[in-house]
Design a protein around this nucleic acid. Structure first.
Lengths: 341, 341
DNA sequence: CTGAAAGCGCTTACAG
DNA sequence: CTGAAAGCGCTTACAG
């Protein structure tokens, strides 16, 4: 937004001084009352007077001034690469439910599916948030961990010692997935990776690879087979690599996210590849659309609501210590549907 | 988040006073330099000294103090009911692209698909935002329009006189849709509404109803047929009303959003209703998944990116006047796919 | 229980 | 071009 020549003046806000005057008290008393710190410090009569004056004038504490005086605000910020991914809806809902009304959640999105960077966070720290929750931070971010606000990383496996982190139990969900594929008779599987280099995707790939080996399943490695978290991008990558996978005897393709899998389903249809007859397809997340796409998608459900709640708990613990706080892993569940029938 | 007993102290931030001391200038000079207001007011030598000191200390202007002194912040807030709807991804991207780096976008979501309310906005105004963008405000909100920050409503047709509003040209898109259905020989259509009572949905329904009449298509009115913007909820409603529609001879069902349509496609499959043979289905939005569901969805594409850009333009204009600013309608386009083939 | 006052870290007239 | 000072609207020791 270009700088504006001169903005129109807005209506003056009601201040604590006005409330104090109307109530016949000091500003300090107004502050104590509106912040509920009256116990043994303000008389009932004054509490009453201030409350009446607040109602009459419609006074609301100025958040900016309050934050400056206090040194911290009541805002908690979630920074994430791509809120349009429905997965975050569940995370956000978990955070809000757990935060309660004392704090206020604001979201910051990085552009173009870019991962949150340290400079993004520095700009947000200037807002003096009560906490910052970072979804899927990238390497650069972790190299220069910003100080200045309590920080919690979400879905950043392997970073537990660097910062407070809330993670999924991917090992469990991936074991179930591979058992399922083995049971269906698959002996050669491929993997469609996410192109964003984030810890969680690194881990998913490695667990699939190792788990396959343990079960005598051949993991056909094709590191180039990776796309952004977007059905169209995934479709293009699948179209490009399908011949290779097919010729290698791959009968099941594990995708890094449901969004990747959607693209595979779409491209497979165009290419005349039958799912699951020619190729079984699986995802991660269990997005709402996964029950509806055709065939319905087998996927490892990641409990986003629990991730959000866990992040708030961790933030609360983090506020009490400068050291990383240990948090329990959140279980992932295999959901079997038609795409691996 | 429950109140914490006593938070650990965070590292002290670098202040302008420290920069001034290192640079050997006054604090005022530091402020002028970091805000780029040096023209004719700061010597080149001092600009240089301050910049070096800023770099050396890693100084960042404290946003809270700056907002308090200035009376307004550099934060623009978008408040929306449900960011998990991929439609908002495009809107957000449009806003960010247009805002540039001088301002910072933060998002606030209302819980549970609830529409933004006046009290939500009052809490946000306490942050002294440079502007507030409200997506799909509800009636109560509009009855008590909050003052205190420049405000722009997105997708709130009929509210142009109450506040600055950016809207789609729904009439155009719906005309194209009905022409298409008429051409395919449909003479009786149904409508699956959104249960959130928002202006835009009201308008969609009315335009479909009137447009049908003008074309000699019978609009089978079933006001109960409405659900939240969620495939599962829409599927349940469709399952309940399909017998009624079928018996009334409905051969095409217009849905208020693509998300509703996904639910219909899913339920239709379970019920053995062939799409488009037994029933043609359409949506609004053109979400990414709409090209991938089966059959692919015919839909009226709403240009979310343009909506976001338009909102920022409108905000900029709004800052110059207390009166609602007139904005052009953004064209909607019909995308024809298999669900009406 | 109460209020005057210092302080949070900036920005912006203002006088020089 | 420069800096001392007032002011933004709160919160919180502190003295009473």
């Amino acid at each position: 937004m270009p700088r504006t020549p001169s903005a129109v003046p807005r209506p003056r806000r009601v201040t604590a001084a006005q409330v104090a005057e109307l109530a016949g008290t000091s500003i300090a008393t107004v502050s104590l009352v509106v912040n509920g710190k009256t116990a043994g410090r303000v008389s009932d009569a004054n509490i009453e007077r201030v409350k009446n004056a607040v109602d009459e004038l419609g006074y609301v504490v100025d958040h900016t001034a309050s934050s400056l005086a206090r040194g911290t605000s009541n805002v908690v910020i979630l920074i994430a690469p791509d809120l349009s991914n429905p997965f975050y809806g569940r995370v956000i809902s978990g955070i809000k439910n757990e935060l309660g009304s004392e704090f206020q959640l604001l979201l910051s999105v990085t552009g173009e599916g870019r991962n949150p960077s340290a400079s993004d966070v520095h700009r947000l720290i200037a807002l003096r948030p009560a906490g910052i929750l970072v979804e899927a931070p990238d390497d650069a971010f972790l190299r220069d961990l910003p100080a200045g606000a309590p920080l919690v990383l979400l879905d950043a496996p392997g970073r537990e010692t660097q910062a407070t982190t809330v993670n999924f139990d991917l090992a469990d969900g991936i074991s179930a997935l591979l058992d399922h594929l083995a049971e269906r008779g698959h002996t050669r599987i491929g993997y469609l990776d996410s192109r964003t280099r984030t810890e969680t995707f690194e881990l998913r790939r490695i667990l699939v690879e190792n788990g396959a080996r343990e079960r005598g399943i051949e993991y056909v490695s094709l590191p180039e087979a990776a796309s952004l978290i977007d059905p169209d991008a995934a479709a293009a990558v699948f179209a490009r690599f399908w011949p290779t996978w097919r010729d290698a005897g791959v009968t099941a393709l594990v995708c890094a996210t449901d969004s990747h899998a959607y693209g595979v389903l779409s491209a497979a249809r165009s290419l005349g590849v039958s799912v699951p007859e020619d190729l079984a397809v699986t995802g991660f997340d269990n997005l709402p659309a996964s029950a509806i796409v055709s065939p319905a998608l087998t996927t490892v459900e990641l409990p986003g609501e629990a991730l959000g709640r866990g992040a708030v708990h961790a933030l609360q613990a983090q506020r009490l210590t400068p050291d990383p706080v240990a948090t329990p892993l959140l279980g992932a569940t295999l959901i079997v549907r038609g795409s691996t029938a």
